Simulated scan of single mutants.
Amino acid sequence: MAQNTSPAVMAQRIEPHDSLDYFPTPPWAVRALCEHLDTWGSIGAASCWEPACGSGDMVRALKGYFGEVAGSDVHDYGGPDQDEVADFLFPALPALADGWPAGAPDWIITNPPFRLAEAFALRALDLAGEGVALLVRTSFLEGVGRHERLFARFPPEWILQFTERVPMVKGRLDGGASTATAYCWIVWVQPCPSGSGRAPRHPTHFPAFRWLPPCRRRLERPGDYPEA
C-alpha cells in the first residue's frame, strides 16, 4: 500500500524538546470558545490572561469578549498585544499581575506548547479565579499518567471538540492551510466561592462533551490573517 504523503496528513505537530512550539491560533477558533462561555455566564466584565500569546493573535480575539485581556510569552515576539516577556511556569507572577485586583485573572486561556500542556493546565488551575481553557490536540485526552495527574484530580467542565479542523502552521497564521490534526478546547470551571450566585460543582462531577458545530465561515473576520 502506498504511503499517504499529502500535506494535510503529514502536517503533524511534533516539535523538538527545545522548540518554542509556536503555532498561532486562528482567531475564529478562539471566538468559538468565547461564544460557548458566553452562553454559560457573561464574560464581558471578566479579566483574562493568555500566557503563551506569541505575537498576540489569540489576545486580539479574546479582547472582543473579555473586559480585560493581558498577553505574555516566554519569547519576545514583538507584537503590540504581547504585554510582557515572562515564563508562565516560573513560580513568580509577572509584572502584569499587578493589574488584577486579586493578583490573578478570572480566566486563563491559551494554546500551550504541546509538550508543556499538562504543566500549563496545572499552573493555570492554581492561579485562575473562575476558569481555564486550553486548546490542545484531541489526543491530549489520552494517557494513563495524564489521567492520574490531571483529569482524575481536576475533572474539566467541558470538552469542546471541533467538528471542523483547525489548521495551524508553525510560526505564522495561514488562512489557506490544512491539517490532519484534530483539536479541542478543554475547559475547567473553578469551584464556586460562597456568594458567587453560581451553583457549586457536585463532588462526583463528570465532564460534558460538546461538539462545536461548523463555525469557521461565520466567525472569521476581515484582517484575521496577514496579507501574503
Rank of each mutant, 00 (worst) to 15 (best):
residue 62 L to V: 08
residue 11 A to W: 03
residue 115 R to G: 03
residue 74 V to R: 14
residue 12 Q to G: 06
residue 73 D to K: 05
residue 216 R to N: 09
residue 77 Y to G: 02
residue 70 A to D: 07
residue 89 L to M: 13
residue 91 P to C: 07
residue 104 A to D: 04
residue 59 V to G: 08
residue 110 T to V: 11
residue 161 Q to K: 11
residue 166 V to L: 04
residue 216 R to A: 15
residue 75 H to F: 13
residue 90 F to G: 14
residue 183 Y to P: 00
residue 33 L to V: 03
residue 100 W to A: 08
residue 102 A to W: 04
residue 62 L to K: 12
residue 88 F to P: 02
residue 104 A to H: 14
residue 60 R to Y: 03
residue 146 R to V: 06
residue 156 P to A: 02
residue 116 L to D: 08
residue 45 A to Y: 00
residue 100 W to I: 08
residue 7 P to F: 05
residue 144 V to F: 12
residue 26 P to D: 04
residue 173 L to A: 09
residue 168 M to W: 00
residue 94 P to M: 02
residue 111 N to A: 12
residue 100 W to M: 09
residue 26 P to A: 05
residue 227 E to K: 11
residue 207 P to V: 02
residue 117 A to H: 02
residue 45 A to M: 05
residue 193 P to S: 10
residue 6 S to R: 13
residue 151 F to Y: 10
residue 151 F to E: 01
residue 77 Y to E: 01
residue 97 A to D: 05
residue 106 D to K: 00
residue 127 L to C: 10
residue 196 S to P: 09
residue 126 D to I: 09
residue 46 A to N: 08
residue 203 P to A: 07
residue 192 C to I: 07
residue 83 D to I: 07
residue 136 V to R: 00
residue 1 M to A: 15
residue 123 R to K: 14
residue 118 E to Q: 15
residue 45 A to Q: 12
residue 7 P to S: 04
residue 221 R to F: 00
residue 19 S to P: 06
residue 206 F to D: 02
residue 93 L to H: 12
residue 71 G to L: 05
residue 169 V to I: 15
residue 38 D to P: 00
residue 117 A to R: 01
residue 217 R to D: 15
residue 69 V to I: 06
residue 92 A to C: 05
residue 24 P to N: 05
residue 216 R to S: 13
residue 77 Y to I: 04
residue 221 R to P: 01
residue 105 P to A: 10
residue 200 P to N: 10
residue 48 C to T: 08
residue 93 L to V: 13
residue 71 G to R: 04
residue 59 V to D: 09
residue 142 E to M: 13
residue 62 L to Q: 11
residue 162 F to S: 01
residue 160 L to K: 00
residue 165 R to T: 06
residue 202 H to T: 09
residue 7 P to R: 05
residue 143 G to R: 10
residue 162 F to I: 01
residue 76 D to T: 02
residue 141 L to Q: 08
residue 178 S to D: 14
residue 99 G to Q: 13
residue 71 G to Y: 02
residue 40 W to I: 15
residue 67 G to P: 11
